[in-house]
Design a protein around this nucleic acid. Sequence first.
DNA 1: CGACACATTGACCAGACTCAAAGCTAGTGG
DNA 2: CCACTAGCTTTGAGTCTGGTCAATGTGTCG
Lengths: 260, 260
Amino acid sequence: MHSTPNPHTLSLFIRKLESISALTNEERQAIQSLPVRIHNFDAGQDIVRDGDQPTHCCLILNGWACRYKLLTLGKRQILSFHIPGDIPDLQSLHIHTMDHSVAAMTKATVAIIPHESLRNLTEYFPEIAATLWRNTLIDAAVFREWLICLGRRSALKRIAHLFCELYLKMQAVGLAGGYRCPLPMNQADLADALGLTPVHVNRVLQEIRGRDLITLRSQMLEIKKWDELVRVSEFDPAYLQLARSAAGETVGNATLCLAL
Amino acid sequence: MHSTPNPHTLSLFIRKLESISALTNEERQAIQSLPVRIHNFDAGQDIVRDGDQPTHCCLILNGWACRYKLLTLGKRQILSFHIPGDIPDLQSLHIHTMDHSVAAMTKATVAIIPHESLRNLTEYFPEIAATLWRNTLIDAAVFREWLICLGRRSALKRIAHLFCELYLKMQAVGLAGGYRCPLPMNQADLADALGLTPVHVNRVLQEIRGRDLITLRSQMLEIKKWDELVRVSEFDPAYLQLARSAAGETVGNATLCLAL
DNA sequence: CGACACATTGACCAGACTCAAAGCTAGTGG
DNA sequence: CCACTAGCTTTGAGTCTGGTCAATGTGTCG
């Protein structure tokens, strides 16, 4: 379950923060020396639970996670998807009780960082504080965009929109490119994220495939007509705040960030 | 349009922050001396627009505002409602381009605070930074709860849930009590917030009234059966992070925060 | 009084849901 | 290497919540 952190553990984190704003050497040093524990999770396992009062945050090093909330009658709403470089429970630094859970969607490696260390970091380095704050603000922007999807877009647009979003997020950390992107979720997960039923997701996926916009098999999404997918979903990547939103560009080395 | 700030302008802000965490005298002083301009808006007027790159934040002193986004075909999604004490565009401090608009829903008085002053404040007072950060995290928690509503709750539950939320928020700043609460919005606004059509909102409101849960006329909501409303909407106030969630208690002086 | 904004009603429609059954497919164990 | 299983995906038929369009009330304000 546990393993020893190695000196490169936090480089993903640093790269993520640097994609938001520059760091000084001193800041980089301070982050590098955060005391972390590494934890491995199985697919489907909870990382943090609704109602918990966490004393640490979880940086995803490898694999996918999602935030979700269970409701009455077995209903579930997935609130967000998270990929390497994300800290899905960063809000727990200032909101002490979890109002939802975080689960691993694949086998996942997670760096566990004590709140205390993060608080010290933000106290001494207001720039880092601002960058982490900004991180949570981008999360909020994504929540707003999902709100728009659930409130005002058809099932087809929702699915297409989500595919655009996830592809760009993965591309931004070098884990996707050439319009191909791992997508380790089943149709029930998509349904729970998009406010639909699995049966309807299935039918709409057939429609999208029928229009030759994507292929999706064995956990791999391929976007065959990016421009068209963007058009039908009314997708505008601005809310993701990706520095160089390389929508449409392939990345050189798709395994860049896996080299941990 | 403009008017001169008076020494009490920021007391609402201070009270709001103090409801989140204690302030030192020095911190209180620093906030008190923020340079603000006061601006009045008419009902329906935009305060900040989608695409703007604001150089200041807007603290609502009086009246209601909402965040919204316009979509194709005249569709609109309301993302949040805001009441006195809120800073609906606080995220603009770290996200430079607005991805939605903020509009006044009533005649509204707003204190305009330069980003620069807020940045200085957060740099010198990490505690204040943390408190403002926490504020935006609570906003995000509300987005998540709305996501759950739009994704997995029926029209009736959504409406009932929103009424519970707005009542508690208003009560927390002393603007509602005795299960009565101003609600300055029409059925089209409710529809745009809840992902429904005005016609359907109308029908469901009749159903809720028919069950004698609420009355709603001339912009005034009265909750006649709080417990029942909470039950049918599966409302759990935890996400609002109200210090002393006085669900069910009346407040002494309902005009407390109007005394600006 | 007339105009306007908003609420309400009716008739009809459609996107999405429900329930249930039948295919696939990737692992697993014999 | 194949049969079995478990978990997903796909299909079908029928239903329902909520949407659409258009008309009619109602209340407020100049």
